[in-house]
Write a protein that binds this DNA or RNA. Structure first.
Length: 794
RNA sequence: GGGCCCAUGGUCUAGUGGCUAUGACAAUUCCCUUACAAGGAAUAGGUCGUGAGUUCGAAUCUCACUGGGCCCACCA
């Protein structure tokens, strides 16, 4: 026995910093593409660069890191790149807010410049948090190698996005069509259905008077969109509605515009809503759109792209939707055609990002075919392993509800440009060659003369892609699709896509769809879906609720290790939401400290070679830890760190610290040479065996403390050690027997008010404990030991 | 409106037909025992949301109800 090699009697978060700085400096986790190990690739979700890391992101990255570290110990070359998302509306909105400008009012160059400025200014706060959390990304530096940090707005990334467009175009998977779209007047762009949110907004429900042409009878119709009376194409009532049956086939005259429209029955009209009569206006909401499609009515488009009313609206022409509504209500009032108004909450489609109520406008947009491929995607989904399996349902539900193809063109600025030019004369569409980043709005066309009309002037496409068109190539990008065919072929498909449940219908779905279009195969082997981190009361964290937990505060207060252990132990993120609070994270730091002190104890002794004969007590704990290794390995393979972590924690506290170490202590010290050298060595060997295997089991979960201990004891980096192999051992002793016996003895002493070191005059215990007799005698200070029915004589 | 999930001591949680219902945190009492007082030993605390059914037997299976959460959807 010597002084412990581990000096400090507690773990400190300050010990983390030199470790991660060293990892970063030396690039220890760099991806080696020439390695002959099997590649395990993780398609990490690139966070937005200009927002700090959210606690949910921090947790999921920590879990991904556990997957990566485990796979490294299982002899895989792990592709674990850090990506940063820098495209799209969030950047533009940040720029508008920061510089107090509307990008739409600037020249395109200036708008893009503003976005670049904001990106320049954005601190790498999120990256810093990842580093401090011990995430083992391949690299922290932007470079060209596989696995290095990548940015979604780099020419390299954007050109790959454009290449995929060209490929899909050539395969006839993209078309342009004029049709009704979700249009956000705030963002001035078309939105996909997946970007539409709904909110209950208070609006006026206006009872307006229509007249029946044939009888002159008055009809009262309730509407939230009186400015669209000009587009009314039909009046409907429910076929079951007795009040209106006589109206079938008659003609209604719209107020103000005095247009004649047919009256029909249709089941979408609800008897109890309003007056039971519905004015079918064009593009009031999605219901109207579907009705017009179904009834084969020609929609009258009264709202322009800029959100103002056009000539169809007559006297409302040129007004914004809001102003037009106010004006038409005034007119209706004047003409005594407005019976009453009442406030209702109307479920209004809004833009997911800007929260503006949407309008429905026909525009020419590019679409990716998806309706014809719903079954193919379903088949693809069946070939992928979902963790947990029930998460697959989220994807299947979404597939069911898709009703239009995927609109991919947007009228924004800071995004990947659609690589297309048009012949000025004949409008022939000209695609550039693949492999280069194109900006058609400012670059010359890639050809000199139009192949069709030989004219030599062209104009560049000004529209850009939906951000999901970019994001959905991430696995292709990290695997060097169309850039390094050999590498791509060898490592297809990507092993793991980890992501949140809320972006299944966007990121996961679009990735599967697009990669199916390009490769005809499932792009992922495994998909790991995580749920949400909620606050300590189970409520969603949101800024407005003020219940946000900032990962930076957690790191400052506790360091990474308690947080990481908490993330593993708290619950299974694949099965549902789990709760987060400082108190819970703090709880995990006790276990960190316990591990430290067990290591400190073991470090007092010299490591021993395996003796010829192991003591029975030692065989028992070796068997126990092997059970733990076996179980952990099986579960880690299935991305389950929760159940093993719980068991490991329990093993550490209960089995190892409280019972094994207590019983083996005297044999390890062997102060008065009560034990033979072989018996002592057996204890020393076993202590190190347990500690080192425990450290390896925990290395993916808590990389700092395990690194520090292992390095102090062995001078080696634990993260490059292989995961422990299972050793077959037999033990005749059962854990529950040992626990029960020790507890009974401790309790007896305590009941008599004696110290735990107090002598036991005569201890009678069952035969089965004969094998560990000596350890029991010295641990409990037993004077005389007998075998038979348990009895403790103090 | 449709669908899915959840309900177990004060709080959180394990437990998919069978011993006295698991564990953690908090609470109370005692203890510095040479790794750890950020530790150890113990104590108390639950009619397993409500009601019914299936069964020899139900926290567990079925139904209804109540409360909470989530997803989807065409309410003018």
């Amino acid at each position: 026995m010597t002084e412990p090699k581990i000096k400090e009697n507690r773990w400190s978060k300050d010990l983390e910093k030199p470790v991660y700085e060293n990892w970063k400096k030396k690039g220890v986790y760099k991806f080696n593409k020439n390695s002959n190990k099997k590649v395990f690739s993780i398609d990490t979700p690139p966070p937005y660069v200009n927002t700090p890391v959210h606690i949910g992101q921090a947790t999921t990255y920590v879990l991904m890191d556990m997957f990566a570290r485990f796979k490294r110990m299982m002899n895989h070359e792990v592709l674990f790149p850090l990506g940063l998302d820098r495209n799209g509306l969030p950047i533009e909105i940040a720029a508008e807010k920061n510089f107090k400008v509307k990008l739409a009012n600037l020249s395109r160059e200036d708008a893009i410049k503003k976005c670049e400025d904001i990106l320049e200014k954005s601190s790498l706060e999120s990256v810093d948090s990842f580093l401090k959390l011990g995430i083992s990304f391949n690299s922290w530096e932007k470079a060209k190698d596989i696995g290095d940090l990548y940015e979604t707005d780099s020419p390299d990334y954007r050109s790959l996005t454009q290449d995929t467009f060209i490929d899909m175009w050539d395969n006839n998977l993209i078309y342009e069509d004029e049709r009704i779209n979700n249009f956000c007047p705030g963002c001035q762009t078309t939105l996909a259905d997946s970007e539409v949110d709904y909110e209950n907004i208070e609006t006026d429900f206006n009872d307006v008077i229509f007249r029946i042409k044939e009888t002159g009878e008055e009809l009262i119709i309730s509407t939230t969109r009186p400015e669209l009376i000009c587009t009314c194409a039909m009046v409907i009532f429910n076929p079951e509605d007795e009040r209106y049956k006589h109206l079938e086939g008659k003609t209604a005259i719209t107020p103000v515009y005095a247009k004649e429209v047919p009256i029909k029955s249709h089941s979408i009209a609800e008897i109890n809503k309003g007056t039971g009569l519905v004015m079918m206006a064009s593009m009031g909401d999605l219901a109207d759109i579907r009705f017009f499609r179904e009834a084969k009515l020609d929609p009258i488009i009264a709202i322009e792209k800029n959100g103002t009313m056009n000539y169809h609206a007559g006297f409302l022409r040129g007004l914004s939707v809001k102003k037009a509504r106010e004006k038409v209500i005034g007119t209706l009032k004047e003409k005594k055609l407005l019976v009453k108004q009442k406030k209702v909450y109307h479920r209004t489609p809004i833009c997911e990002r800007s929260k503006d109520p949407l309008e429905f406008i026909t525009m020419k947009e590019f679409y990716v075919k998806q309706l014809d491929f719903k079954n193919d995607i379903k088949k693809i989904a069946d070939k992928i392993n979902f963790y947990s399996p029930k998460s697959k349902q989220i994807l299947l539900d979404w597939l069911e509800s898709i009703s239009i193809d995927w609109p991919i063109s947007r009228r924004r600025f800071y995004a990947t440009e659609i690589p297309l030019w048009y012949c000025d004369k004949c409008n022939e569409q000209i695609l550039p060659k693949k492999g280069k980043y194109h900006q058609p709005w400012k670059e010359k066309a890639p050809i000199k003369s139009c192949p069709k009309c030989k004219c030599s002037t062209f104009r560049g496409e000004t529209r850009v892609f939906d951000t999901w068109f970019d994001s959905s190539i991430s696995p292709l990008y990290i695997l060097k699709y169309s850039r390094d065919d050999k590498f791509f072929k060898k490592n297809f498909p990507c092993t793991l896509r980890p992501q949140g449940k809320e972006i299944v219908r966007t990121w996961l779905y679009y990735t599967l769809l697009k990669c199916y279009h390009l490769t005809k195969k499932p792009i992922f082997k495994d998909v790991w879906i995580n749920y949400h981190i909620v606050d300590e009361n189970g409520k969603k964290m949101s800024k407005s609720q003020g219940n946000i937990i900032d990962p930076k505060d957690v790191i400052n207060k506790f360091g990474a290790e308690p947080f990481r252990l908490w993330a593993a132990i708290e619950g299974s993120l694949t099965n549902g939401d789990f709760r987060c609070s400082f108190e819970r994270i703090d709880g995990a730091s006790k276990t960190i400290n316990k591990l430290w002190n067990v290591a400190r104890f073991v470090s007092m002794f010299e490591k021993s070679k395996k003796p010829l004969k192991l003591s029975e007590l030692d065989k028992w704990i070796i068997l126990e830890i092997n059970k733990l290794i076996d179980y952990s390995k099986k579960q880690y393979e299935r991305y389950d760190f929760h159940n093993p972590a719980t068991k490991i924690k329990n093993f550490l506290w209960e089995t190892l610290a409280s019972h094994y170490i207590e019983l083996a202590k005297t044999r390890a010290y062997n102060q008065e040479n009560r034990f033979s050298k072989q018996e002592q060595d057996s204890a020393l060997y076993t202590l190190y065996y347990c500690l080192e295997n425990l450290l390896k089991l925990l290395a993916p979960i808590t990389p700092f403390i395990t690194y520090k201990i292992y390095e102090t004891l062995n001078g080696k980096d634990i993260h490059f050690e292989p995961f422990p192999k299972i050793e077959k051992t037999i033990s005749k002793i059962k854990t529950e027997d040992i626990v029960a016996l020790n507890s009974n003895i401790w309790k007896s002493k305590k009941d008599k008010g004696l110290s735990l070191k107090a002598e036991i005059k005569k201890l009678t215990i069952p035969e089965k404990f004969k094998l560990i007799k000596e350890d029991l005698i010295y641990t409990h200070t037993v004077k005389e030991i007998k075998f038979g029915k348990e009895n403790i004589e103090l």
